[in-house]
């Protein structure tokens, strides 16, 4: 009875996971398949295999501009966001002070704000200070969006650090800066790499805020929408596949480094 019950639960859970994957991956795989399809309109049966759409985007200077913008934005904002995230996580780890909870809540706030509202607020603010439409605006906006993710990842790693090891470094003659450089940063390094990849992926994919503040410096998601507004064009599938592979790679790298965290953290039990 019990075993049969377990089997049933097992079956239901497995089907559930299967369905989740089906819903997530069907559109992506469809897009991937049609990106190699010669027909202009997505329909079954498929036409012949072609690289024509990849050729189109390869020869389109607008796509290259967008890729360049996206990369600049993603790299800059991931570095900034990881830097800020590290500082917030470290202050949380190291110090106790009045209103610390308020400080942490504020640091984690951005993802809880609806993107549209955030995007509008950013647009209003950047127009006011006259930087709207510049690439810096997109970088700043994405940094704000990404910093909490970086902080969360780095904070988890810091929580695994034995508090004594930083003090041990001071005790062995390291200034606070030297202890930071030789002990704290090496310890959290996997989380820093993970945070860089994760925030890069978030920035690379982000559409709403970029659409509002990017002006002529279009990122890839903004470009995709623009092409779509014009007409239905299978080159979208090709761009989509490219974006999907880039993002997935970054997220997988982030996950791999994130998993290193348990290894290497000192535990004090002895055999």
């Amino acid at each position: 009875m019990n075993i049969q019950g377990n089997r049933l639960i097992n079956f239901i859970l497995k089907s559930y996971i299967g369905l989740v994957f089906l819903f997530i991956f069907t559109p992506i795989i469809t897009s991937l398949v049609f990106s190699f399809n010669s027909d202009r309109f997505a329909s079954i049966p498929l036409g012949s295999f072609t690289l024509k759409w990849y050729e189109t985007i390869y020869n389109d200077p607008d796509v290259w501009d967008a890729v360049r913008t996206s990369i600049i934005v993603a790299v800059s904002s991931s570095v900034l966001a990881t830097g800020i995230g590290f500082c917030t996580a470290y202050t949380d780890f190291r110090y106790t002070f009045k209103f610390k909870n308020a400080y942490l809540a504020l640091a984690l706030l951005p993802p809880t704000i609806p993107l549209i509202i955030m995007a509008l607020a950013m647009l209003a603010w950047f127009s006011k200070i006259g930087t709207s439409g510049s690439i810096f605006s997109v970088i700043i906006a994405h940094t704000v969006l990404c910093a909490p993710f970086a902080m969360a990842v780095i904070r988890l790693r810091l929580q695994q650090m034995n508090r004594d090891i930083e003090a041990a470094a001071w005790n062995l003659g390291a200034t606070e800066w030297a202890a930071m450089r030789y002990v704290v940063i090496p310890f959290v390094k996997p989380a820093i790499v993970s945070a860089l990849c994760l925030t890069m992926a978030v920035s690379f994919d982000e559409f709403a805020v970029a659409w509002f503040v990017s002006g002529l410096n279009k990122t890839i998601p903004v470009l995709i929408l623009e092409i779509l507004q014009g007409n239905v064009d299978p080159q979208i599938n090709a761009i989509g596949t490219f974006v999907f592979i880039t993002t997935m790679t970054l997220v997988i790298i982030a996950q791999l480094f994130f998993m290193i965290r348990s290894q290497g953290s000192e535990n004090n039990t002895n055999e």
């Binding site: 090891i165 041990a168 001071w170 005790n171 200034t175 310890f187 000192e266």
Partner: peptide, 21 residues
């Protein structure tokens, strides 16, 4: 004096060895 300005090294209860070295 700050900890790093003293010649008073310590053996810690948790040992506090650097796990990445």
């Amino acid at each position: 004096l700050k900890p790093h300005e003293r010649e008073t090294p310590m053996v810690w209860q948790s040992l506090a060895l650097f796990p990445f070295l």
